[in-house]
Write a protein that binds this DNA or RNA. Structure first.
Length: 571
DNA sequence: TTTTCCGGCGCG
DNA sequence: AAAGCGCGCCGGAAAA
């Protein structure tokens, strides 16, 4: 059963209609006011558990969540359209000519972050192409076109799974955004006070940061140095006899000079102050919750991105401020060596798979397994080699170790090599479930036909660069699909847990809910008594995700789970 | 003045 | 040890 949802005749109303799986109407279209919508959705959800079909989850779901209404499943037309327009699996279906341009995002961002020029530039073309009214008929037409495309694609079942998982991701993202990460403002302030000193007034540096700047100026004998200016800094470094090409910290660490230590210390503190200091707290944390904003499929590979507050770059330094509510705990899980395992599965490399399983068919540390098979037991060496193979390293330690890996696992290495060669030729590559790279630009292709020696060198560099991108894309993208399926399965199981019991007392607003997702890591905020059950669910969902994508294979995708009160204690 | 780019660094 | 993928955010520098 589908429930189609679209804007009504005017912006204060919404239109809803039930459709059977074959597309025939199961109810008349009704128009309800926006204020009434949550109640209407709740009733339909309870009665039919339909798959909600909407232009994009972000235009509807946050409002429903505000009204305490959750839905089980949806079909996000915008996300699915984006997948189908690019997917090689659907390239021959003629979908591109059938797709209906979607309406723009209409919801205001969660926090009052100033809209940037980038946003308006990004939204403008979509708004210009979108029809004035995106009503139920548009929703139905687009859904039908997408279903047709999937059914006539080269791998219908894979693409179906991908669209379902991506849509589930849209629900998870909105729900996590709604819940927010438990974030203790007072703890964060104490942390800042300890590291930086008291909150500075106006636009001055905090005491300890300024002290570090003073020390640095003295060490460099540069009284007027602005340590935030790279140009200023590199000049001062040269004058002090430090012959660095850049001011990157790993390069500076090579030099022995009394200025290096204060400089690195300044950098570290400065970053904390500017990125996750008092201003950040003010802007993003309210009522002890950090409301992250996720962008599903925001990365070409299908990974999520985030905007505002840097939800996916929370530094270890401040994770101590993320503490579970009283009576609650965090259950934090991360997939162990996800990308290498994905590579082994993609390439069906049984030797590499065997390195990740013990004799009894149980998982073990993949890097350690590979190290035992060919790197004299040196785990870090095996890790560097494997990551180098996935990223396309050619020089350095990583580049030197890759050939050894290629001898051990020709199938796996061949798989990423093929992807790289295809990318260099300007071809597109796809993940296992059918997310494809964007086509190369005409300029890129034209560049490849250069004639002069200089142009040719640049073209070759561009080709190699694209090869590294496509090489990594197949692995990173399929890993993102695994994570998406894991999330979807987690969500399904968490929803089945008993909710907060009224007897538990005041302040118990929520049951177990996901509050953070970080590519291969997920954090659930759960009532203490459900910690064990949630832990079990983490493992179970991982097994199910693997089976959904790859079927039954002789390789597991284990997750490490920790139950902690504070995010800083995870791992 | 405003907008865009870039270096540097946080995360995976 | 430091070069090899994908991002977002910040401040300063360059471009408009």
């Amino acid at each position: 059963m589908y429930a189609l949802l679209a804007a009504g005749p005017d912006s204060t109303t919404a239109a809803v209609q039930l459709r059977n799986d074959d597309g025939t109407p199961a109810s008349a279209a009704r128009t309800v006011s926006r204020a009434q919508l949550p109640q209407t959705v709740r009733e339909l959800e309870d009665a039919h558990r339909p798959r909600w079909v909407w232009d994009r989850a972000g235009n509807w779901y946050p409002q429903l969540l505000e009204g305490s209404v959750r839905v089980e499943k949806c079909h996000d037309l915008a996300l699915c359209q984006n997948l189908l327009l690019f997917s090689e699996f659907a390239a021959a279906t003629g979908y591109a000519g059938q797709a209906t341009p979607l309406p723009p995002e209409t919801m205001a961002p969660i926090a009052a972050s100033a809209p940037t020029g980038q946003d308006s530039l990004f939204d403008a073309p979509a708004a210009a192409n979108a029809p004035q009214a995106w009503g139920l008929d548009s929703v139905f037409r687009e859904l039908s076109a997408q279903k047709l495309a999937v059914n006539s694609a080269t791998h219908p079942s894979r693409l179906t799974l991908l669209l379902i998982a991506e849509s589930a991701g849209a629900l998870v993202a909105a729900e996590m955004q709604h819940a927010g990460i438990p974030w203790r403002e007072q703890l964060h302030r104490r942390l800042l006070q300890d590291l930086l000193g008291p909150e500075p007034a106006g636009h001055t540096r905090p005491d300890k940061l300024e002290a570090m700047a003073v020390e640095l100026r003295a060490a460099l004998n540069a009284p007027s140095l602005n340590p935030d200016s790279p140009q200023d800094l590199i000049k001062a470094l040269h004058r002090a006899g430090i012959d660095a090409k850049s001011t990157r910290s790993w390069e500076l660490m090579e030099f022995k000079h009394p200025a290096i230590e204060p400089l690195l210390a300044y950098r570290k503190l400065s970053r904390l102050f500017t990125t996750n200091g008092w201003n950040w707290l003010e802007q993003w944390v309210h009522d002890d919750r950090f409301h992250a904003e996720y962008v599903v499929g925001g990365v070409v590979s299908g990974r999520w991105a985030s905007k505002g507050g840097g939800a996916m770059q929370i530094p270890a330094q401040i994770r101590g401020a993320a503490v579970a509510d009283p009576g609650y705990t965090f259950v934090v899980a991360d997939a162990a060596q996800l990308e290498p395992r994905v590579l082994a599965a993609l390439a069906q490399d049984s030797a590499m798979a065997a390195a990740g399983q013990d004799g009894a068919g149980h998982n073990k540390d993949l890097y350690a397994g590979i190290a035992a098979q060919g790197f004299g037991g040196d785990r870090s060496m095996a890790k560097i080699a494997l990551l180098g193979a996935i990223y396309g390293a050619t020089t350095g330690e990583s580049g030197r170790l890759v050939p050894q890996l290629a001898r051990m696992y020709p199938r796996a290495l061949n798989y990423v090599e093929e992807a790289a060669r295809a990318g260099e030729r300007g071809e597109r590559v796809s993940t296992y479930l059918g997310r494809s790279t964007p086509p190369v630009s005409p300029e890129w292709l034209a560049g490849q036909r250069s004639t002069t020696a200089d142009e040719q060198r640049r073209a070759e560099a561009a080709a190699r660069s694209r090869g590294r991108f496509t090489r990594n894309f197949v692995v990173q993208g399929t890993a993102a699909e695994w994570a998406l399926c894991w999330l979807a399965e987690l969500r399904r199981r968490l929803r089945a847990l008993p909710g907060p019991s009224p007897a538990a007392g005041a302040g118990r607003a929520a049951g177990a809910e996901m509050v953070l997702f970080l590519h291969d890591e997920v954090m659930v905020h759960a009532p203490l008594e459900q910690a064990e059950e949630v832990t079990r669910i983490m493992h179970e969902s991982s097994r199910r995700a693997t089976e959904l994508i790859f079927g039954r294979i002789p390789l597991e995708f284990p997750v490490n789970v920790t139950v902690v009160q504070c995010y800083a204690d995870a791992k």
